[in-house]
Amino acid sequence: MNISLERISRSFGGFTALDDVSLEIREGELVALLGPSGSGKTTLLRIIAGLDAPDARAGARIRFDGAEADLSVPGPRHVGFVFQHYALFRTMTVFENIAFGLRVKPKRERPGEAGIRTRVAELLSLIQLDSIAGRYPSQLSGGQRQRVALARALAIEPRILLLDEPFGALDAKVRQDLRRWLRRLHDKMPVTSVLVTHDQEEALEVADRIVVMRAGKVEQEGTPEEVFHHPKTAFVMDFLGNVNLFHARMEGGHTGAMTQVRARPHDLEVSREEGSGPAVRGRVTRVQTAGAAAKIEVATEGGEAIMVEMAHDRFKAIGIAAGEAVFVRVKDARVFVEDYTI
């Protein structure tokens, strides 16, 4: 289902959670709303679900496949919603939790008992938990609960699936497994999905498109590649990964102006020789090789800490150790207009 949000604002007392946000979500997409807490991402998700209503302002509109939704009454929109803390019905078994959405349907739409059984069995095998139908939520692990919550949301065959920090309360390892599983599930069953997260890795790994939010506004939207490699603002660059900050003096047109230059750790290079081109002099304070890449911390002469990442084979080739004097060269960096200070 296509979702079109136009000029949505929402304030709670004096706090503006959403400030004139417009957003298009296309059929079959998995969109991640990414941002720090307080950026308005959960509020936006709840408004799409109809759990909350936007402020009544001229031009505020939500359309589902072109049909305008009534915003004056918050109410169910027949969406699948997965809550951060699962919100499983603890007095019901896994089976009854998943069957709930089917059982509360009006009589003429409700499948018979046999139909409900078949549907729940399908969903149980989809979430690979066939054997636990009779258990209660309290007897499940966090990852199992989250999968049951997802199956419950999918039971009513929603045309939109909304996930509010679905993996936020899980261990790192389980979280990784589950988000890959979610991605595979979405490839198999492409329900239009919106996922709220503050974890950039999760967004980059799972989503087709990322909407980065900040202070109630959309900061940037695009594919994971776009937002990661071509951040439009310093905020997006900072939020999507580690960043080294250099203070530099502009040459050419803006002679004398001080500016901030941002570079990712893997866009820096360390060597013992000064070589050609601008480089920063410093001393290696720490070397960490446990992990996917080797991490080298360098303290500059100005006292700033720089983090450099490189592949293990490259690290072995140059063989740098803590305490050595080195030069850090910038392979790729970014300057954002907003950072100019004159």
Binding site: P76, F89, G101, V104, A153
Partner: peptide
């Protein structure tokens, strides 16, 4: 949360 979950489930 539980009540909201029930409401969105219809």
């Amino acid at each position: 949360d539980d009540e909201q979950a029930a409401v969105v489930l219809g």
